[in-house]
């Protein structure tokens, strides 16, 4: 009975929405745990965006954090010259999406893993640029005391209401992803992921699909980056460096790429780790590394991909062509 209810995506989404809103409410007495929950919700959004690209399109963009950073710096810059956050946020996110499309161009020529390596270098360039253009970004010093978004009436968005906004964003993000994946666009993306030459001969415009995926995925990165910024109150190039990209990607791989809920679970499990292990700094990195190795050795398709679907290997999660095709 419960199985059947949970089988439909609507009820899964409803359950997720319930949890996403309930957790900040339950934790509202402790701003520290509420803060961790808020950061986790931003990561749910990011992981869903990364999932569209990595899970459904088969592209592994390690410049994801850099794109989020572009939106973040733009929003901070625009609000500092007097724009409202609510105007700056869509502008920043859209600009990040456009940059994401441009940076996705190599993916049209490079297949699978070659694009991953290329994106690693792109991310490095973005980080170098954040450090180098001191006048725009304040270099590696970072920007402190970022003002909170103001609400109509002059009050600022903070505390529980901010957490709930983040919860709403995460829910909307997952909802949009479900709609996209279930649409014709989603099926075309999977076709591209499985074999883009075949997809091309079937009349699917591979270029258009990939660039659209980059636009949407980068939009997730950008919106997440815009809301993350005032929430934390501080950004620097290291807030958006390659390690952050790798972390978001790991959440997708860990949870199960190409499934809706895998990356969400990955984000929920991994995003709080650095905060909860704060007292165990001696072993934190080693534990994290062992966790990664454990998953890839024991659950190569991720938690959801490995546990839930073990009986019958799903064609969705065996993308044999990723990577080996560049010659």
């Amino acid at each position: 009975m419960i199985d059947r209810i949970l089988a439909s995506r609507q009820s899964q989404l409803a359950l997720f929405a319930l949890l996403a809103f309930a957790v900040p409410l339950l934790l509202s007495g402790n701003r520290y745990f509420a803060f961790i929950a808020g950061i986790t919700l931003v990561h749910v959004l990011w992981a869903s965006g990364m999932n569209l690209l990595y899970g459904y399109t088969g592209l592994m963009p390690l410049m994801f954090a850099g794109i989020a950073g572009i939106s973040s710096y733009l929003v901070v810059g625009l609000t500092s010259i007097g724009w409202s956050f609510w105007l700056a946020m869509p502008v920043g996110a859209l600009a990040a999406s456009l940059v994401g499309v441009v940076l996705g161009l190599p993916a049209l020529r490079l297949k699978g893993f070659y694009f991953t390596l290329c994106s690693l270098v792109i991310q490095t360039v973005i980080t170098l640029a954040f450090v180098y253009f001191v006048n725009l970004t304040n270099g590696d010093t970072g920007i402190s005391q970022i003002p909170l978004p103001t609400l109509p009436g002059g009050a600022s968005l903070h505390g529980l209401p901010y957490d709930l906004v983040l919860a709403a964003l995460a829910v909307i993000g997952v909802f949009v992803l479900i709609r996209l994946v279930d649409s014709g666009f989603g099926r075309r993306l999977i076709a591209v992921r499985e074999d883009d030459e075949l997809a091309e001969t079937l009349g699917i415009g591979v270029t258009r699909q990939k660039l659209t995926a980059f636009f949407v995925g980068s939009l997730y990165a950008g919106i997440g980056g815009a809301f993350y910024t005032p929430y934390v109150g501080f950004i620097s190039p290291r807030s958006f460096d390659v390690l952050i990209s790798l972390n978001v990607w790991l959440m997708v791989a860990f949870g199960g790429r190409g499934t809706i809920w895998g990356p969400v679970i990955g984000a929920v499990l991994l995003a709080p780790v650095p905060f909860l292990l704060q007292d165990y700094y001696m072993i934190k990195d080693v534990v994290y590394g062992l966790l990664i190795i454990g998953v890839i050795v024991l659950l190569p398709a991720g938690i959801v991909g490995g546990l839930v679907r073990r009986p019958k290997p799903d064609p969705e999660i065996v993308p044999a062509t990723v990577g080996e095709g560049a010659r």
Partner: peptide
């Protein structure tokens, strides 16, 4: 493993993390 370059990448990221931590 069919798409082992991704598996290897993850694996070696794990090793990176461990060595960096140590």
């Amino acid at each position: 493993v069919p798409n082992r370059n991704i598996s290897y990448f993850v694996l070696t990221l794990g090793i990176t993390q461990i060595l960096a931590g140590i």
